[in-house]
Design a protein around this nucleic acid. Structure first.
Length: 581
RNA sequence: GCGUCCGUAGCUCAGCUGGAUAGAGCAUCCGCCUUCUAAGCGGAAUGUCGCAGGUUCGAGUCCUGCCGGACGCACCA
């Protein structure tokens, strides 16, 4: 039996290498405490080096007090005896290159088909509590625009990736419904409310939200309350209008997110947390440990404002945890700062999570240290917070920048973009670059049907396979496909497909969902290359009517590739196309 | 001034937590397509990995210092 259930090719051979190392420990060649050295088994960059390569000898040579090539020779001799290993050769400074038997890759095709959509699914479920991924968390003051889009997709894909890798995952949205801008929202809604009751409000005053999206909110409020809140002092209606307006905005945001297929599990309210006394409790705990004190902030560096005055405030000693200055948790009027609430929120979140991941816009980079400091202090280091910063998306149309003006409310909304190019394109494109680098998004490019558009290229591969399988449905093929009829290039494609479980593990460990997109582009490219062999030589096509055996084998390979493409796209939240139009 | 991120082929970007001769697409050059699988295909050429030190068997990757760019820098959110 070649396959071991639950383990992919790489894990199996990691075990085999570990066994070979253990044998050297047993006979005294390698000291026991060196056996946990950083031994890596990976596919070599250069395929001519074989299927797998390990640095085991180089990693162990120092402890074994021999030279790497000598040690590599001994390890390779042991490995070469394994029935699944065709050759084990020492190369370069002490690499061991393994060429596996073709049966290994043939068996992996069968393993992919047997596992189906579960191929590559991990079993990392060893934490007692879920991993919490907080993303989007846009202020509930308006519709989603493109500025939110990238973080939304990256966060959602990361959550899916972690779930597929075997973690329990909670997708969370932090609703900033307690700050001053929510008051602005409430006043803006009140204005629209008066408008809905027939008043001529003229231009929306400076400092209020001008967008038309508040008109329906005003109408709802008018229908519900009639004129009861007209001409009354703000104190009488502000809290009510705040609640109603936030609810309406969150409904709108949820609807926008649904267009991308994003659904959060938990919405945490800043106001509710504050009302429940969470920040006060966090402050009390920190004060008891002398981590909050009354102090004065230094004037801001750079350009010091003219009206700067030193004020004594309760400060959290974030400098103890690597921050540059200590941070105020309450304002001089005694109310909570954003950070004061946020630290309490993260403490609460940490109590129900094994790890925290935040997806933030890069404009919040300056606040990362303080919140990491707070989490470390309030959890005594037991829960790690990993803040992923996502850079901006620059919009273009045929190479020309799309103009946006936030002040006039003239921004490109998420809904507009999804309507124009489609959800799959948006989601895929947001993952075609490392999140920490700015991304250019061109409306013209992303719908182009050509090699250089990765969305199209991946979809096209899947559609080609689907098309061939439809065509093959009427053929009389052997029930057991002779996978030994596949040649080296075909097995090379199988080898790439077999890397999917490893991609999942590594992308999840690094928390980098974009790696899935790059892997898919590679896999699709390899498939297209194979497909194109049939242009010159019909005998190399997937369907060879005169040869049912080889046809069956190639169709199994193609089916396996399509399965991996579907699964990987699924992790990205993208549907696989059966055909292109 | 300080912090975070970025700097890799002409362009757009990967680079698997330190591995071998640094990769892909586009553009360029050469060759192929009277569509049974060309919304193209095959091949070639392309590098001071921003600069300079350091760490070690080994650095695009880690550390330090510079240079250039983006973002941020009050009790805002």
């Amino acid at each position: 039996m070649i396959g071991v259930p639950g383990l992919d090719v790489f894990q199996r051979f990691e075990g085999i290498v570990a066994d070979a190392v253990a044998a050297l420990v047993a006979d005294g060649t390698v000291p026991a405490d060196a056996a946990n050295a950083a031994i890596v088994l990976e596919p070599p960059r250069d395929p001519s080096h074989g299927d797998l390569a390990t640095n085991a000898a180089m990693a162990l040579a120092k402890a074994a007090r021999t030279n790497p090539r000598e040690l590599a020779t001994r390890i390779a001799m042991g490995l070469a005896r394994h029935p699944d290993i065709a050759t084990a050769e020492v190369a370069g400074p002490g690499f061991i290159n393994l060429k596996l038997q073709p049966t290994v890759w043939q068996a992996e095709i069968s393993a992919i088909l047997a596992a189906g959509a579960d191929y590559g699914r991990g079993d990392d479920r060893h934490e007692a509590l879920p991993v919490n991924v907080e993303y989007v968390s846009a202020n509930p003051t308006g519709p989603m625009h493109m500025g939110h889009c990238r973080g939304a997709v990256v966060g959602d894909a990361l959550a899916s990736l972690l779930a597929f890798a075997g973690h329990d995952v909670v997708r969370e949205y932090y609703v900033n419904d307690a700050g001053g801008q929510v008051d602005v929202l409430a006043r803006s809604a009140h204005l629209r409310y008066r408008e809905a009751l027939g008043e001529d409000i003229g231009d929306v005053p400076e400092g209020l939200y001008p967008g038309d999206y508040l008109k329906p909110v005003g109408e709802l409020l008018a229908a519900e309350f009639g004129p009861a809140h007209v001409g009354r002092p703000e104190g009488e209606w502000l809290a009510l209008f705040r609640t109603r307006a936030v609810d309406a905005m969150m409904d709108m945001i949820r609807a926008d997110l649904a267009l991308l297929g994003i659904v959060h599990d938990v919405f945490s309210s800043e106001a509710a947390l504050q009302a429940a006394g969470a920040p006060a409790a966090a402050e009390a705990e920190l004060r008891a440990r002398d981590l909050v004190y009354e102090g004065t902030l230094p004037p801001p560096k750079g350009e010091t404002p003219d009206d700067w005055e030193p004020v004594e405030l309760p400060l959290f000693r974030s400098t103890r945890y690597g921050d540059d200055i200590d941070r105020p948790i309450r304002k001089s009027d005694g109310s909570w700062t954003y950070f004061g609430n946020d630290m309490a929120y993260h403490a609460e979140k940490a109590r129900r999570s094994s790890a925290l991941v935040n997806i933030w816009g890069a404009d919040h980079a300056g606040t990362v240290k303080r919140i990491e400091a707070a989490v470390e202090a309030l959890t005594n280091g037991s829960v790690k917070l990993d803040v992923k910063l996502v850079q901006m998306v620059r919009l273009f149309r045929g190479g020309e920048p799309v103009k946006m003006s936030k002040r006039s409310g003239n921004f490109v909304t998420l809904a507009d973009v999804v309507e124009e190019v489609g959800r799959d394109v948006v989601r895929f494109m947001m993952l075609t670059k490392r999140p920490e680098a700015p991304l250019d998004f061109d409306f013209a490019d992303v719908v182009q049907q050509s090699r250089e558009n990765p969305v199209f290229y991946v979809h096209y591969a899947h559609a080609r396979i689907s098309s061939v399988l439809r065509k093959a449905a009427g053929l009389d093929l052997p029930t057991t496909a002779p996978l030994d009829r596949l040649d080296d290039e075909e097995l090379g494609l199988a080898r790439l497909a077999a890397q999917w479980p490893r991609v999942v593990r590594q992308a999840a460990a690094a928390r980098e969902p974009h790696r899935v997109a790059f892997y898919l582009a590679d896999l699709a490219g390899a498939f297209h290359t194979l497909w194109n062999r049939g242009n010159d030589d019909p005998a190399q096509r997937l369907l060879v009517e005169s040869d049912p055996g080889v046809t069956a084998a190639r169709l199994q390979l193609a089916t396996a590739v399509a399965q991996v493409i579907r699964t990987a796209l699924g992790v990205m939240g993208v549907t696989a196309a059966e055909e292109l139009r």
